[in-house]
Write a protein that binds this DNA or RNA. Structure first.
Lengths: 218, 218
DNA sequence: CTATTTGGTAGACGGCGTCAACTTGAAGTT
DNA sequence: AACTTCAAGTTGACGCCGTCTACCAAATAG
């Protein structure tokens, strides 16, 4: 029976191993050729290793995919976390901070469509259960909850979470529409798109944070 | 040069052909084994024809997928269309009609997750360009616009479409969250889910249709 | 020094999408 | 009636893919 948890029996120094390289290369491949274009064999080929080598680190393609998803979730949470306190600390007016968070959210979706699709727009691979993907998703969600609670300090926890879920899903919806070119095929021209996006953000804002009417959008 | 548009040279009477059977079987397969579980060969096998027969009707797997998507869009539009005037005509109060449309929307997403994912949660196959998928998507969207315009008769067209897009995307987001079990892994229990969904619908409602405050949800 | 474990290799199997070549039979032309 | 055409169906092959099995080497544990 083995007592040590992990040893490094072969090449591959203790830090950045073939496993890391696989994950990174997988992200590249997904970025280039799309989610269904990812294949373990292609990753192995690009890394100059045999087509079976990745299997020593990931039991299946789905496990690799799940690991990539996990990285995306962590990265996404980090983006949200650093969105509020950017330059001079946390001094921005509350509504602006919220608006900024929303923009961060959408910008992230725009700049990382692959990550976005992996996290929120595709059924997680079953391997997600073995890794603890939901834990990382919760971490991102909790950032949102915490931000809202600062803007509505006197709100009950359940309502807070319901508000957060609304924002979470509403922005997912918007991001999904952007990613899938929905606005184009629904015949929105460029100006209309921008206007409609602003309108949507304003509606979300006012739905959750109430009264101040929104003539800023025009 | 052939003058007739279509003849029926082989078996297959003029109405329901192998093509139809392929589409239907494809929908079954997707329902059972998921989107990526669909293969032309499996469809052909289930239909008792050779693995190449479907290629006489669909240039590629993606074209079959696009055709399935088209059916889903048409069916979805029909569901929306029949949502308002169900029993006694169109006599329901406006807000209730809107609420009902929203529920139809979400119920549809719940009962046809495959259709839903095809239409709104996966990048359309490239074959979508050759068929006119966007036309059918627009038809569904226009139903929503038309419904809203009845509730806000004095609204400008652009704003109307922006409102509709907000509802469209917001509900897509909610449906996506339901479909991917987001609420479960975000630690919402059954009661909280129901409450949060109602909350979200109320927020959408009040964001678009304004004033009447929402104590109906508690 | 030997045994075990870990990370790597090569090969095979079946399933997939798709290209190519061949067959067949219904329709249109003369 | 004979001939041509051509859509619809067939079998076969090719090159990918995920994954199973078997083998191999080196580092560590005892």
């Amino acid at each position: 029976m083995s007592k040590n948890v992990a040893t490094s029996p072969h090449a591959s120094n203790g830090e950045n191993s073939v496993k890391e390289a696989c994950v990174r290369k997988a992200m590249e491949v997904i970025a280039e050729k799309g989610l269904e274009g990812l294949s373990l064999r292609a990753v192995a080929r690009a890394l100059g290793i045999s087509h079976q080598a990745p299997y020593k680190h990931f039991p299946s393609r789905d496990h690799l995919l799940a690991e990539v998803t996990r990285r995306c979730l962590i990265d996404f949470a980090q983006a949200l976390r650093t969105s509020g306190a950017n330059d001079e600390g946390d001094a921005l007016p509350p509504q602006q901070a919220m608006r900024k968070l929303g923009e961060t959210y959408i910008r992230y979706a725009l700049e990382n469509p692959l990550a976005y699709r992996l996290m929120f727009s595709t059924p997680w691979p079953e391997a997600a259960l073995e890794l603890d993907l939901s834990r990382d998703a919760r971490a991102a969600f909790d950032i949102l909850v915490e931000r809202i609670s600062r803007l509505k300090p006197d709100t009950e926890g359940t309502t807070l979470r319901a508000d957060a879920l609304f924002i979470w899903t509403a922005i997912h919806g918007i991001a999904g529409a952007i990613e899938s070119n929905a606005m184009q095929y629904l015949d929105f021209d460029a100006g209309e798109i921008e206007q409609a996006l602003g309108h949507a953000m304003t509606l979300i804002d006012s739905a959750v944070f109430g009264a101040q009417q929104s003539e800023t959008e025009r």
